[in-house]
């Protein structure tokens, strides 16, 4: 199989995720965009691990890390909701509550 459509998919995912991180203001949507970027990295790691399996092993580590990141991130979002009732990353500007 040719590498090109894997490359296109991963570049597309990374650009879409980056656009989401830059422009969106809802923290859950920002977390979703970060997940898209991590998936894009995983596609390349898996598709190009041709000689040995290091890329695939590394991709499994990335999956575990992103699960941990989503866990902590959603806990922060929920706490934000309890404190402010209106989730908008632009409103989060207090250093101490």
């Amino acid at each position: 199989m040719i590498a090109f459509h894997f490359l296109i998919t991963s570049i597309g995912l990374v650009l879409i995720g980056l656009y989401g991180v830059i422009t969106l203001r809802h923290p859950i949507k920002i977390l979703m965009s970060i997940e898209l970027i991590l998936n894009a990295a995983n596609i390349n790691l898996v598709a190009f691990s041709t000689e040995n399996l290091i890329g695939q092993g590394f991709a499994s580590l990335v999956i575990a890390i992103s699960a941990a990141e989503v866990c902590v991130g959603l806990a922060i979002v929920y706490n934000l909701y309890r404190l402010k009732k209106d989730i908008d990353v632009m409103e989060v500007n207090a250093l101490k509550w």
């Binding site: 590498a3 894997f6 490359l7 691990s49 041709t50 399996l53």
Partner: peptide, 11 residues
Amino acid sequence: SITREVGGTKG
């Protein structure tokens, strides 16, 4: 310009 083959190893 990348024209490498992908896959090949069984995960």
